[in-house]
Design a protein around this nucleic acid. Structure first.
Length: 608
RNA sequence: GCCCCCAUCGUCUAGAGGCCCAGGACAUUGGAUUCUCAGUCCAAAGACAGGGGUUCAAAUCCCCUUGGGGGUACCA
């Protein structure tokens, strides 16, 4: 089918061979582009046949959406459209404001930016949006940088590493914004608005009352030059607003949302500079994105509406617009609501059956290692996951799968794997609720990949913080913990799980017996005490105390006594560990050693 | 109020008009294994929000309704 007789949109797919010139330029354009600093890629496009002749042709090419305007040359023949497509190195950014913590949802956005940059062998930039910060930036930034490091997401430009577009702090880029404002003011695309805030507010309320969209009254535009000069001279407070062309429409081709269009007649003139001259986010971000040569703005959906204003700003300043990809935000578990760290919401999450588990882990673990669960440490923050002993791989895996998938069955993916296969095309559109259960299951999977030594390394800090072992750590402690972790096997899911096995670290006198289990296994069965007392003597005379010998010993003994193993083993477990459940009985006994086993059994026998 | 976005099992998702009376994973339930727990194995249950079109054929395209969410700041 050719475009001429196409009746409806027809998908035309162009196969993508290795980089080679298109049929029209025979390589001239390719050579020319290669000699410049840009890289060239030959790529597959897929476009509606009815749009092929249009100069505004759009494609679903993930590398570049505006390729018709950037192509070096192209040809169309036999239903095949081929083109040499020059593309710039992909540059993405994440622009956190220094709030003192890293939000797990923000981390997912950062990850997608990082992935897209790495997937394309481009650069990932960290820029600090501190336009309205007065606090200690360094202290507020440290946890954020730490989160990136913990997950192993490096940045090519930004704080600490610098880069060709330094500084990377908006608070230090004031002159650049001022320059841009001057340009806009000079061109008449921005104006000084002398209306006091109260007046604007009243206008806004009036609009709402009449159920019409709010638009600025633009009184200051009617000021004569003389009046304006006079106001300025007397230092009358004012903001600077961008002058929206109310007759225009503005649209973007979003990588996730597709075509999104706004009627500018419905958009109020946005403030771009505060009364004190400082820039607002919408403005600063445009200036920065342009000057840092960001090619892809990947951010959460909540910014989609802002994009209309930003697109106008890019145009007005004469900057090429970056490509946009508005990814769904991370929602609270089991909801479609944006995950929030506000205290009120936190209380709600705590009661959420899906989220509860993570809060319970915090309540259990954090106090043991000297931290307080609450506003400063909870599952909305990345630091929580590190504090509680998650693996970076698990968090990365979970975050990657939140709103993105590789195919219909692959679940466990390493960062390398995701990097290789990540495309914006496969990002879903709906919001994705954080799934604690799934996160835990990724954690199980990745923990299972870790060697015993690695698990020991991960657990030791927890044991030290909980004062279960001393600091500095003795070699004998390491050996002991290694044995415990071997015995634990896949029971150890989080590194902090090691703290549940306090029975291996307390003295025999301090061991607490689980009341319910003690009743059930030691007090209730009539023969339990006698059997345990008898078996205690067997243990006492045992020559070797390794798990294998102990197992043989017990089996031999129960055969002799003509009883079932279950009649004694549960009592033995409760007596030696204080708990009804745990690793294999013989591992436990071997781990504790003969003396402690006997001492604990004696104590239990006395308590029956 | 106004603007914008979104809609498949409880959850995360697969799905580009026929491969789909919808596939996978997590969670759930049952069974097997074991001294307990964890794990492992097997099995079960479980979804296209509703209504109209278009089409020989719709989860998929279009429209409407409903529902959910986001934005609407001298916040980011």
């Amino acid at each position: 089918m050719s475009p001429a007789n196409a009746t409806g949109p027809t998908m035309v797919t162009i196969p993508a061979p290795a980089i080679r010139p298109c049929s029209m330029c025979s390589g001239q354009a390719l050579a020319a582009m290669r000699s410049s600093s840009r890289r060239l890629k030959w790529t597959t496009i897929r476009a509606s046949a009815d749009r092929l002749s249009s100069p505004t042709l759009t494609t679903t090419v993930d590398l570049i959406s505006s390729w018709p305007t950037r192509r070096a040359c192209s040809s169309f023949a036999n239903d095949r459209y081929s083109a040499c497509v020059p593309i710039m190195t992909v540059r993405t950014r994440f622009a956190p404001s220094p709030t003192g913590y890293m939000h797990i949802g923000g981390m997912r956005t950062a990850l997608f930016n990082w992935l897209w940059a790495r997937h394309n062998e481009g650069q990932f930039i960290l820029r600090i949006d501190d336009t309205d910060q007065e606090r200690n930036i360094d202290a507020a930034l440290a946890p954020i940088l730490h989160a990136f490091r913990w997950l192993g997401l490096g940045w090519d430009e930004g704080p600490e590493v610098g880069g060709p577009h330094a500084p990377y702090f908006q608070s230090k880029r004031g002159h650049l914004y001022r320059q841009a404002v001057e340009t806009l003011l000079f061109r008449g695309q921005a104006y000084r608005d002398f209306d006091p805030p109260e007046l604007t507010q009243a206008d806004r309320e009036a609009a709402e009352k009449e159920k019409r969209p709010f638009l600025n009254v633009r009184r200051s535009l009617d000021l004569s030059d003389v009046e304006r000069e006079q106001y300025l001279a007397e230092g009358r407070p004012h903001v600077i607003r961008f002058l929206v062309d109310r007759n225009a429409r503005i649209s973007i081709e979003d990588h996730i949302r597709g075509h999104v269009e706004w009627d500018c007649g419905l958009i109020a003139d946005p403030v771009i500079c505060r009364g004190d001259g400082s820039p607002l986010y919408n403005f600063a971000t445009v200036v920065d994105d342009a000057q840092l040569e960001i090619t892809h703005v990947i951010r959460a959906e909540e910014h989609l509406t802002n994009t209309s204003v930003q697109a106008m700003l890019f145009d007005a300043l004469g900057y090429a617009r970056p490509e946009f990809a508005h990814i769904p935000f991370v929602a609270a578990p089991g909801s479609k609501e944006k995950l929030s760290k506000r205290a009120k919401k936190l209380e709600k999450y705590r009661k959420n059956p899906q989220f509860q588990k993570l809060f319970e882990i915090a309540d259990d673990v954090l106090p043991k290692i000297g931290l307080q669960p609450g506003e400063s440490m909870n599952p909305v923050m990345v630091s929580y996951y590190e504090a509680v002993g998650f693996l970076p791989e698990a968090i990365l895996n979970g975050l990657s799968r939140l709103g993105w998938s590789y195919d219909d069955k692959t679940e466990n993916m390493s960062l390398d794997f995701v990097t290789e296969h990540f495309t914006l095309e496969r990002v879903v559109r709906g919001p994705a609720g954080l799934d604690p259960d799934k996160l835990l299951s990724y954690q199980e999977h990745w923990m299972a990949q870790r060697s015993t030594e690695e698990r020991v390394d991960g657990c030791l800090p927890f044991l030290v913080k909980a004062k279960y072992i001393g600091n500095p750590i003795e070699a004998s402690d390491v050996r002991y913990v290694t044995h415990l972790i071997q015995a634990l096997g896949e029971r150890l899911k989080l590194f902090s799980d090691i703290l549940q096995y306090d029975e291996y670290f307390v003295s025999d006198a301090d061991l607490t017996f689980d009341e319910k289990a003690f009743d059930k296994r030691l007090r209730k069965p009539e023969e339990a005490g006698t059997l345990l007392r008898d078996f205690r003597e067997e243990l006492a005379s045992a020559e070797s105390f390794d798990a294998e010998s102990l197992e043989a010993l017990l089996h031999h003994w129960v055969d002799q006594q003509e009883i079932k193993i279950a009649q004694v083993i549960h009592a033995l477990r409760v007596a030696t560990t204080g708990k009804p459940a745990g690793p294999g009985m013989f591992d436990c006994l071997a781990l504790l050693g003969k003396d402690r086993c006997l001492a604990r059994i004696d104590r239990a026998l006395e308590l029956i």
